[in-house]
Design a binder for these strands. Structure first.
Lengths: 280, 280
DNA sequence: CCGCCTGATACCCGCCGGGTATCGCGAGAG
DNA sequence: CTCTCGCGATACCCGGCGGGTATCAGGCGG
């Protein structure tokens, strides 16, 4: 299955073999065996590489999910063995008071497992959950894709728009979503590399990290709509203007759905109580 | 991994080996190798069988998920190869006009893949999706567990309570949820075998199929709160009484989240349009 | 104390997955 | 048109791993 994914991604038996650390003929044979077993061709062989067939495309998607599940099994078992702490991934950019509060309450619990915080790249969090590198994650709705995860809501916060201090609108004490759309027309939201390292098409400058994003915003080249707690980590020459009619951002604690360890269950229970306490 | 799951489930090397169709020593060795590879014991061996360790429990959960993913990959690829129709599972009991309408619209689409309807046992639908036996399913919220699935809402319907025609309340033209609770006290909801074939504990008579459920309701031994469309398949000596303050049941089309085939995407698109048309 | 049932160990064998060498073929250059 | 180059396929060999049988070791019950 790894072999198949490698060939599908490289679209080339030779390169795939090199990547896998084996030689090309066994790889050819392995793929052929897989095709026989499944009763269908997975690639159309041409004289200059290979292309995926439709069943091949199906298998590629499914294989990626299956391999992630297998890797997760191994990683989680390893970690369960060494009673390492629960790994909680957070967006480096979005560590608001919600998370610190949750961690404090959790630490105060009797018998609570230690929690190791793990910052990670934007958009990478869900993947770390799926392949077992992490046990739980703090995500923000509606940005993240929650399929395969259970969640508990731990907070909501309004959105603000970040613009440079010298921006003509920087004196406003609130903006409507329509007005934000206007701003975005002149200075679009920066584009990030996504989980695959690819930059999506579209307008907007390209930012590689959070510092670049802030620089763009400060220079009036970009506008950024984000949860209000992001205010805490923005440079002083950027102002945050509330956008009351923007959908509030929901912060959730997420974990893989198919059952969890006691340690994660404990963390989740704490999160549930924390959320209840904050609401009440 | 299959080996590990077998031993974990049987809690006995000999029986597990028999189930796997191999002999006991290679199984012992395979498990030992796995333990070495993961760097932790997975079982505590006693003189009368084995018990799972804590890492073993983790691996059992993860392995089940991973094996389901692998099985799904194989099945879906096979079906993609033979351009078999999309398989859509439905609760045998709940094939209301929503589904027939969806299917009619889909069939009218140019180039739409054929759809094969597959009835299945209550509670079994989500499992058929996860292990690749089906491509899509009609589910009802909030009954089904949606983790790992993408959904599109295709309709909502109010709930009704089903009671026998001779029931003292059968003349009412609506009941409150509180009144239904009263009814349930005397004649609880029947219990079904769940996906594992286990009957949950609790009050209420046991029903093996839909006919038995109806018999129990007709005899005044059971009360059944269900979506209004179920009315269509109930015997005439059962009456349906609207329960306006019961949470309406949402019907959704669900499919595995991690990308789908063109055929399923087409069906989903049709469902989305159907839902929009019905709402508009 | 003995017997039985458990999992572990010892040992052998066939086959599958890895290697190297080579072939067949289609595309592109001259 | 042909030669060449680059691709995947094939042929063949080998070692190790996964399977088998026979047997051992230990704990619990009779």
């Amino acid at each position: 299955m790894q072999y198949f994914v490698a060939v599908a991604e490289e679209r080339h038996f030779g390169r795939a073999a090199e990547r896998l650390g084996i030689s090309q003929p066994p790889l050819s044979r392995a793929i052929r065996q897989l095709e026989v077993r499944l009763g269908t061709d997975l690639f159309t062989r041409t004289s200059r590489g290979v292309e995926l067939t439709e069943p091949g495309n199906v298998l590629l998607r499914e294989s990626r999910a299956a391999l992630a599940a297998v890797a997760a099994a191994e990683r989680r078992t390893r970690r369960a063995a060494t009673d390492e702490p629960v790994v909680l991934v957070v967006k480096a950019a979005a560590t608001g008071p919600l998370v610190t509060d949750l961690l404090e309450r959790h630490a105060a619990e009797p018998g609570a497992a230690p929690v190791r915080l793990e910052p990670c790249a934007i958009g990478e969090q869900v993947r770390t959950l799926r392949d077992g590198r992490a046990d739980a994650a703090v995500l923000h709705l509606p940005y993240d894709d929650l399929t395969g995860l259970d969640i508990v809501e731990i907070g909501q916060e309004p959105q603000v728009v970040f613009i440079g201090r010298s921006h003509p609108q920087s004196g406003r004490d609130s903006l409507t979503l329509a007005e934000v759309q206007e701003l975005l027309h002149d200075a679009p939201t920066p584009r990030w590399a996504d989980a695959d390292g690819r930059i999506p098409d579209g307008p907007g400058p390209i930012a590689r990290d959070h510092g670049q994003l802030q620089a763009l915003v400060a220079l009036g080249q970009a506008t950024w709509l984000a949860p209000a707690s992001c205010r805490a980590m923005m440079r002083p020459d950027i102002v945050a203007i509330p956008v009351p009619d923007a959908e509030p951002i929901t912060t959730v604690l997420a974990w893989p759905a198919h059952g969890t360890s006691d340690a994660v269950a404990h963390l989740v229970a704490t999160a549930t109580r924390t959320a209840a306490a904050l609401q009440g």
